[in-house]
Nucleic acid binder design. Structure first.
Length: 695
DNA sequence: AGCACGCCGACT
DNA sequence: GTCGGCGTGCTC
């Protein structure tokens, strides 16, 4: 076969793609014997190479032709892994990297290879961004290269060629607005405007005001001559703050770094921040690294939301990155939400942040009335019974619809797949032979075991003897169908995973939503009522955060309901004595977070202790645990069997250290990982600081 | 990761 | 004598 490509017409698409790629990107010359730059001839480079370049910088010679462009922060290509043949350096794979410094001389004893190419002189990796990425990598036992991938967006040449507008003018100091509802609110704004760095854990009042409060905090920071950054958990909340900022400051005063923009627009906006044209940035998770200059304020909204945790290694969390930035860049912090996380409560308790909350009287004025009801309380009405609505919930929904407002029904996610449990006492229905979960292919279909497949024709509950079964959670779709029958002639709208509604009209309707997908009522009036169904399903999840998370989901829904004075009612179907239920009834998220924090402290759980998980094959986990040199008062929990991965047996161990030793734990884990690579141990161990799924 | 260098057993 | 085993170490 010819190697010259005459058979190109028959080539596979991948080959064509490869050819196009190689043709498009000009091959950098070797710069063999080229003159080197006279001034600062050494470029220190962070090479964007996977795990194996264990966090080292490499020095390269700067050819004279690149002396001007090869500035710190610039993207470059370098040859890596070359070999020396007959005194000449040959080959070496091209890798992308960033210049971190220009130096007079290198401390590397051998000869330096020249930079292959300056991809772009744009100084994207600014010193503060580099410092932040280094700090985040250390905090999470990850590599700088991994964090850089999260922090610096891919280059888009056209976007880079466009000039950014001149720096935006500073807005005037805003009036306190909704912040005057919080005793410490006006002072908080004034401190930001005055160049101070106040740090607050903000319990946001229910209602539609919070995006405007965030916008005012941003405006105050800009007015004081500094920059501001806001990170929110999803696109809908970004859009709300985006609108509030535009209303308050006008067009073009902030950059919205949304994920759905396309690479060019995204990079264009990122550059407008990096170049200092725009002083405020908002966005979802990835925006946590936005290179806002002279940062005066970082805002994180709803820091308990799971999407603030980055799924990519080393899994940095928006709140933690925000706190690291605030410390490093002397910025203020606003950690806000309708709920308060345990981490927020801890920041208050240690004195690092101040609580920013309204007094009880104000809360009473704006919060809806909350009632609890157990789901044993069945309604007499046949339709309500079919919809499994307790009578209190049924009445509340009926009255709310009659009053002319929409009613929100929150249903835990699960779809149609029924996981069965005892209809009376909620004990999961299990197979008598293998303890596997019992399932039914359809409602009224015969029972069988989900593990061994055996039939279970005459099940009864081993705990209470009941013969009644029910699906553990009825999904949003089926709830919608059944409620539609229960309330004929009332429109039913659903919002969930696949189709999330941003808003619903302020008219009678049943709005069925999974937690976190609740639409906002147009016009700012709010729902007339909300019914929070199947609370037990949220509360009984085997997760350390189940209580905290349930309260967060409930408060987020309840915050969309009208104040009690305007008839707003929330009915939560759950055991009334449960702590999150109590906290919802009293609308006391801060108190709840404090109690949770006490409990975590007692049990030596995070965030009072710092934890890390190590997962992999039993041999690999044992190997790492044998190598690691942990701080003396560290605990090793496990290893225990974990769910198989691609059919491979897996184990997981948890490492735990007391407060203040998180950095030591991360360092020990990183050292052990490096040692394993050096010893050429084949199987990798997945290390995760602050694991999210601990039962 | 690749890929070379390096120091001990059976072969043309 | 040499070819080659993959242990060990490096990549600017």
């Amino acid at each position: 076969m010819s190697s010259t490509g005459e058979n190109g017409a028959a080539a596979e698409p991948e080959q064509l793609a490869f050819i196009r790629e190689t043709v498009k990107r000009a091959k950098p010359r070797t710069w063999r014997g080229a003159k080197r730059a006279e001034h600062l001839p050494v470029a220190r480079v962070v090479v964007d190479k996977g795990v194996l370049t264990i966090d080292k910088f490499f020095d390269y010679e700067v050819p004279a032709a690149m002396a001007e462009e090869a500035q710190p922060g610039a993207r470059v290509r370098v040859r890596f892994g070359a070999r020396v043949v007959k005194g000449q350096r040959e080959g070496g794979e091209l890798h992308d990297g960033f210049i971190v410094a220009r130096l007079e001389k290198s401390d590397f004893p051998g000869p330096l290879a020249p930079l292959a190419q300056v991809l772009s002189p744009e100084p994207v990796l600014t010193p503060p961004l580099l410092r932040l990425c280094r700090t985040v990598a250390d905090r999470y036992a990850g590599t700088l290269a991994d964090v850089l991938q999260l922090a610096v967006p891919p280059r888009h040449a056209k976007a880079e060629a466009e000039p950014s507008p001149p720096p935006r003018p500073r807005p005037p100091e805003p009036a306190p607005g909704g912040w005057s509802r919080y005793p410490a609110g006006p002072d908080f704004l004034a401190a930001l405007a005055g160049g101070g760095s106040p740090r607050a854990v903000w319990t946001a009042l229910p209602g539609p005001g919070w995006p405007y409060e965030i916008a005012r905090a941003v405006a105050a920071t800009l007015a004081g001559g500094r920059g501001a950054l806001v990170v929110l958990p999803d696109g809908r909340s970004v859009a709300r703050v985006d609108r509030a900022l535009t209303e308050l400051l006008g067009e073009g005063m902030h950059a919205t770094l949304a994920a759905d923009l396309g690479p060019r627009e995204r990079y264009r906006r990122w550059l407008s921040v990096s170049r200092g044209s725009v002083h405020a940035a908002i966005g979802t998770r990835a925006a946590m690294f936005a290179p806002v200059r002279d940062l005066g304020l970082v805002v994180v909204w709803s820091d308990g939301d799971g999407s603030h945790s980055d799924p990519r290694a080393p899994h940095p969390h928006v709140r933690e990155v925000a706190l690291l930035r605030a410390a490093e860049e002397s910025a203020g912090v606003l950690l806000g939400g309708h709920a308060v996380t345990v981490e927020g409560a801890q920041l208050i308790r240690t004195g690092w942040a101040r609580p920013l909350a309204a007094d009880r009287e104000t809360v009473r004025q704006v919060a809806p009335r909350v009632r609890t009801v157990t789901d044993q309380d069945q309604h007499r009405d046949a339709a309500a019974q079919a919809a499994r609505l307790p009578s209190v919930a049924w009445e509340a929904a009926r009255e709310a619809l009659a009053s002319g407002g929409p009613v929100l029904i929150q249903v835990p996610r699960r779809g149609y797949v029924p996981r069965l449990a005892c209809g009376r006492c909620r004990t999961p229905a299990r197979c008598r032979r293998c303890e596997g979960p019992l399932e039914a292919a359809a409602a009224d279909a015969p029972l069988h075991c989900g593990w061994c497949g055996g039939a279970e024709p005459d099940w009864h509950c081993p705990e209470c003897g009941s013969f009644r079964l029910r699906a553990q959670v009825i999904g949003a779709r089926r709830t919608a169908e059944e409620l539609g029958k229960a309330f004929p002639r009332v429109p039913v709208r659903t919002s969930g995973r696949d189709a999330v509604l941003a808003t619903v009209p302020a008219e009678p309707a049943l709005v069925i939503s999974t937690p976190g997908a609740e639409p906002v009522v147009e016009g700012g009036g709010g729902y007339a009522a909300a019914v929070l169904l199947d609370g037990w399903a949220l509360l009984s999840r085997p997760d350390l955060r189940a209580g905290e998370e349930t309260l967060r989901l409930w408060l987020a829904a309840a915050a969309l309901v009208k104040p009690a004075a305007e008839g707003g009612t929330v009915v939560v179907v759950a055991e009334p004595t449960a702590r999150p239920v109590q906290a919802l009834v009293r609308w006391d998220p801060l108190g709840h977070a404090g109690l949770e924090l006490d409990e975590r402290a007692q049990l030596h759980f995070p965030p009072v202790s710092r934890m890390a998980s190590v997962a992999g094959s039993p041999a690999a986990v044992a190997d790492l645990l044998g190598l690691i040199r942990l701080p003396s008062d560290a605990d090793v929990l496990g290893p225990v069997p974990a769910p198989a991965l691609r059919g491979e047996e897996q184990e997981r161990a948890l490492l735990r250290v007391p407060p203040g030793q998180g950095a030591a734990l991360a360092a020990a884990l990183k050292a052990a990982q490096i040692a394993r690579i050096a010893l050429r141990t084949p199987e990798t161990v997945r290390v995760r600081i602050d694991p999210t799924d601990i039962g």
